[in-house]
Design a protein around this nucleic acid. Structure first.
Lengths: 164, 164
DNA sequence: CTTGCTGCAAAAGTTTTGCACACGT
DNA sequence: ACGTGTGCAAAACTTTTGCAGCAAG
């Protein structure tokens, strides 16, 4: 139950419909809707932003659920297929994920010094995605826009050290 | 429509200046400009588009140069630091690279079925990068825009199989 | 000479897979 | 019952690192 862990009230409203959507998606492929899959989906919905596989595993175990790393990875793959979450590629270290169902796709602004990630929305992103796809005759599915820069704090910190 | 402005012939003209730039960059850090580093830079300049570390290693060995995987990775890192090449993150499988020095930054259109990657230019990309950075007070460094879709060929192939 | 560089092999880290058993449908 | 799913541990991969000898400045 973990009281007080529900920081994202709005996401809570998504649990019911998304469970149904995921279950339908799974069944449509002749696969099975298991407790583990439901549990992982619910853990994903509890995340408010970008998350990682290992992080999900850790938090689920903290919450007393015993799931294996393998099942996490296998289920995340299905959730991506179902277009409920999407991969977020910020660096080559590991894959990150983000809830994407029913949300405007976001761009990401990354500080190369601190690694801090800021999400932002801009209608131009989806417009650009569609324009490019139309130009090449592609069916648009998703996009990823990541901007790398130096945050104000990092610039200030650097200017103190910097003496070249 | 685009003439051979991105061909390897044009890149040939970049070898001299880029060697100088890289050497200066390396020396500025108190590091050493070695034959291996020059060789790797030259192999990179021979690539016409996106490439991978392993691919570079294979081709250099084919060409009769003996370089280690470790040195390839170490040098690619320096080339990224020097802003001569940039990382291209298409999927989580591996890191790809691309010559970026003196070039308009590109976006990538990826077919999710075939994995084919099309590069494209659009001034809106850099404009968007700068607009976002300005909004948050960041110093813009680079960006990555990847659009995932289904190519006309893939859509056609799928429609033949598809009979749900 | 001093300091960094290279190749090799081993290590590290993330993601995948083989297997035996358990469980949805 | 049948066919998937799960957990575990091992495997697979890409990328990094420790080390001993080598080379650039």
């Amino acid at each position: 139950m973990t009281p007080g862990s529900n920081s994202t009230v709005t996401d809570g409203q998504l649990i019911q419909p998304l469970c149904a959507i995921f279950r339908r998606f799974i069944k449509r492929q002749g696969l099975k809707f298991t407790p583990e899959r439901a549990l992982i989906l619910s853990a994903v919905l509890g995340k408010d932003g970008i998350f990682e596989a290992e992080e999900l595993l850790y938090e689920m175990r903290q919450a007393g659920h015993r799931v294996s790393k393998a099942t996490i990875y296998r289920t995340l793959k299905h959730l991506v297929d179902a277009r409920i979450i999407s991969e977020v590629l910020i660096d080559a270290d590991r894959t990150r994920y983000q809830l994407s169902f029913g949300r405007t796709p976001k761009g990401h602004l990354v500080c190369v010094e601190s690694g801090k990630i800021v999400e932002f929305e801009d209608p131009a992103l989806t417009e650009l995605r569609d324009a490019i796809c139309q130009k090449y005759g592609y069916e648009p599915l998703s996009f990823q826009f990541t901007v790398y820069g130096r945050s104000p704090q990092a610039r200030q910190a650097e200017s103190i050290i910097d003496d070249r």
